[in-house]
Design a protein around this nucleic acid. Structure first.
Lengths: 209, 209, 209, 209
DNA sequence: AATGAATGAGATTTCATTCAT
DNA sequence: CATGAATGAAATCTCATTCAT
């Protein structure tokens, strides 16, 4: 009788925890091998659940994949928001945000590839999760650049344009970071980005000599 | 009329042509569906050859995939070199090269994803083709930035650093171009990139007001 | 009636039974068409399982083939041991063993061909299962012939030699039995073998007339 | 013009020779890897001809296989007949024939497996070539044993029975020779076979002690 | 007549998903 | 509700045979 009770208690983990375990396991495996090369059996094993449980929680491998992307996107957003709010000065907000963004992808190896894979596989079905979210946060980014332009007025450039260049710098950094010999710290790289972004590489007055 | 007759006979293409047909078909399909989701039968059909022919020319699906990447990389290199040599002024060389680079990926839709897929699937086996090539052309890029710095001396930045920022801008542009609502022409975007890269967004003298 | 109900439900066989079903089906098909000409789909169909089940139980077609051979070798050994132990007198043991051996191959049509196929296909990989087992049982056979020589001493022949001749007679019988018009029963053939083996065909005293 | 002539002379080999080259190449390969595992490309390469030529000479791989078997059977028959005719005394004829038979298979490694493979693959179609031939030569064998029985009369055994035992001994020897540690020469083994075949292993007078 | 590139049916094996227990 | 054995569609690759040159 007492053992009965014990038995019932075993699968004590809440549904929420179960889902989380699975997503965590899946996340690592997807990042390591990609979506197609990761097999559901391996995910189930790593999560410590049966394959049936996996399918009770996620309608399909695809949905599981998207759930892992979602999880990472939530983390990314939280990281970025935290960074932005840690500073007062608009330029320092920008620096902190860039640092957070690039740092996030450095710590979550291969994640950027996952977002790109999604584009390949589920192209037909809908818009990519990553870029949907990116879109959604555009206004926040734009606001940041508008703040910056308020401090450093420049009627030859718009907040949108700065936002685009910023996006390119950051995504370029993320994409290349794993493959360029990393001789500098992320901090140093971000500082360089800031310098060029702010002043360019041409010294004032040197211009059209 | 006389060529018509020739066309009706089946196997009168040279081996070279055959390989090319296959790679061309594969290229489109890989770009559209990715490596794993592309079926060798479909490739053969699209190339207008039997599956056996495909396997006579390429030892495996993987080898075919890599041949596809190689072909694109050859094209990319040719495009970029042509652009660079079309201008005399170092800054104009840079502008032309950026334009060519981004233009190439705009015209070859989804190709960047293929290079990223390669990273995911064949990670264990060897270095990615794309980044191997990138590495190989670093010296040419660096030389360009050294030329530029000769014209616009600046001892606060190195050619390597400019090269890194340039790489970020370009790859960021490629990655984002397919997903950002494109309101400007590539030309306009490159001009903006040049402006910021050269002068930053902060007007001289405004600095730390 | 109650069992009827159980039968209708699909997967209620034990893992052991499943494996056995598959091996049984495979055995028949291999014996009929040989290893290479037997299609795994056909085996699965005949066993009443899906192809996936077959591969869950046996890593490859080859492993299935070997499992089949193993099963038959187990049966053969059991048959032979049983026969040998059914008699007390050494010569009667021999007769019973021969009978069992030949009878086994008569009842398991084409099995000898399977053992020979194994030799052909897997030559490079390892020693043939059949001959490995044969080797292993040599001591038992030799012991039998030593017993016999104890009863009928003959210093012109060794137990090993008798064993060799016995082996030839038995394997020759197995090989030929399916192809010679069988006018006699196995029993009669074994009796003839015994007569010649014991006394030869030349009557005493007739020798070199 | 003169070179023209030279060109025409190139494929100087007669059709007969070509066929022979192909069969010779095929024979080795079939013996080494078996029928199914031998591929026609390899045969063509080894024979030094194109695959088309192979198919001009033999309707199918199967026909080529049978042609190689036929060739070996012709050789076997010639060898055996030569041996038989080399002796006058019936018993010596037998000894010589056995020796030739076993020697033939010792020199043509794995050939016995080929005959057995034929049984497996072409079972449905017709009688095996080997056993068809065996059948055909039965009369000659029987005549030999009748001769022997004329010299050593024994009304307890028939020529047919002796022939069967002889067949078993010989085929058993062939089958086992490649797999038993061969400590004796073929000659020695045949002598032992003769001794037992003639007198058995039981000394006269010892019989039912 | 000889060649060997092209063909495609067919074979093995994998793996996402289901479902009886 | 959890499990994992069972499933079979689908994918890669091979190889006997054909046929244009």
């Amino acid at each position: 009788m007492t053992t009965e009770k014990a038995k019932l208690k075993r699968p004590q983990k809440s549904a929420e925890e179960r889902r989380h375990d699975i997503v965590a396991a899946a996340s690592e495996l997807f990042a390591e091998h990609g979506f197609q090369s990761t097999d559901t059996q391996t995910v189930a094993d790593k999560a410590g659940v049966g394959k049936g449980t996996l399918y009770r929680n996620f309608k399909s491998k695809e949905e599981l994949f998207k759930a892992t992307l979602d999880m990472h996107l939530d983390e990314l957003r939280a990281t970025v928001v935290r960074a932005r709010e840690s500073e007062q000065d608009p330029l320092e907000k920008l620096r902190a945000t860039w640092l957070a963004y690039i740092g996030f992808f450095e710590q979550n190896n291969n994640i950027i590839e996952l977002f790109i894979e999604e584009r390949l596989y589920f192209r037909d079905q809908e818009r990519s999760l990553y870029f949907t979210r990116l879109e959604r946060s555009r206004d926040e980014w734009r606001a940041l650049f508008e703040d910056i332009l308020r401090v450093y007025p420049n009627d030859e450039v718009t907040a949108s344009e700065l936002m685009d260049i910023s996006g390119q710098l950051v995504h370029g950094a993320v994409l290349l970071s794993q493959h360029t010999a990393i001789t500098q710290s992320t901090r140093q790289r971000v500082d360089l980005m800031m310098r060029i972004f702010m002043h360019g590489f041409i010294k004032p007055g040197q211009d059209n000599i």
